[in-house]
Design a protein around this nucleic acid. Structure first.
Lengths: 135, 135
DNA sequence: GCGTTTTTGACAATCATTCTCATTGTCGCG
DNA sequence: CGCGACAATGAGAATGATTGTCAAAAACGC
């Protein structure tokens, strides 16, 4: 687990490229099954298992973001350069991206104060959007 | 959903009391199955289904916190008066509770700016604790 | 007490994710 | 250029937490 990946050669395969490319084209978050369906509908022949594995690998490598909404499915998205969070409507699912530089540094500061290294964090804000609140 | 619960009488049962009492005694987060096992080992006769239902009800009522770690199991804890977040070690799972008043107000402010109401949020910080980093 | 209504709980069902393992595709090296 | 080692693939089974089902039991109002 902590082993420095000396010989861990990551091979370049058609499937891996397909997943990676797809993530580069789509907007927002999508579930693994979602992405798998998209690949199939565009003619790519990729197994669901492989999609899961590839996404896991990309997530471990820090190349994509993972969000775990209460709904149950994990959602993946290409990691944008700017780290930001989400404001999600509880009723309609509408998502607004928000940034909080202060939060970033606060999280790092707190983690370091406790001696933690290699820090990351997840932050989701839930609420009812204006449209849904009106009803 | 908005219906005034005119006749919705919540009944007081042995099982509900048991779960509630247990949550009042234990420290930290525990999974539903965990809590169920504790109840059984102390002689309480409660079904797993009922534990799940009760926890859901308590969570809906805002009386307990729910955390969804990457591991998969939902963890429940009696809601403390002060809202705070968690710093979790990726390797050993050690958890440190942290507070961030600034984050709370920032989240509310951002949500309100977008017209969202009834706001809540979740924030988890992940990292490697000093012990695990040493190895 | 009595009837009504909620609650319970054993078990089946669901469903995303992970595991298994034989097969296939890559890539380094001679 | 061809070989061999070994990672990667993928179909299906397995896992495992959570939710649904529904008949029987328990609570509560009167």
């Amino acid at each position: 687990m902590v082993a420095a990946d000396s010989g861990t050669a990551v091979r370049n395969t058609r499937q891996r490229s397909a997943v990676s490319a797809l993530l580069g084209e789509v907007e927002g978050f999508h579930s693994a099954q979602d992405l798998h369906a998209m690949l199939r509908s565009r003619g790519e022949r990729v197994g669901l298992t492989t999609v899961y594995r590839t996404l896991q690998g990309l997530a471990d490598a820090g190349e994509i973001d993972v969000m775990r909404p209460p709904g149950g499915e994990h959602l993946y998205r290409r990691c944008s350069e700017g780290h930001h969070h989400h404001l999600v409507c509880r009723a309609c699912g509408r998502t607004v991206e928000v940034e909080g530089p202060a939060v970033e540094s606060w999280a790092d500061r707190v983690a370091n104060k406790h001696g933690f290294s290699d820090v990351s964090h997840t932050l989701e804000i839930f609420g009812t959007c204006p449209e849904c609140a009106r009803r």
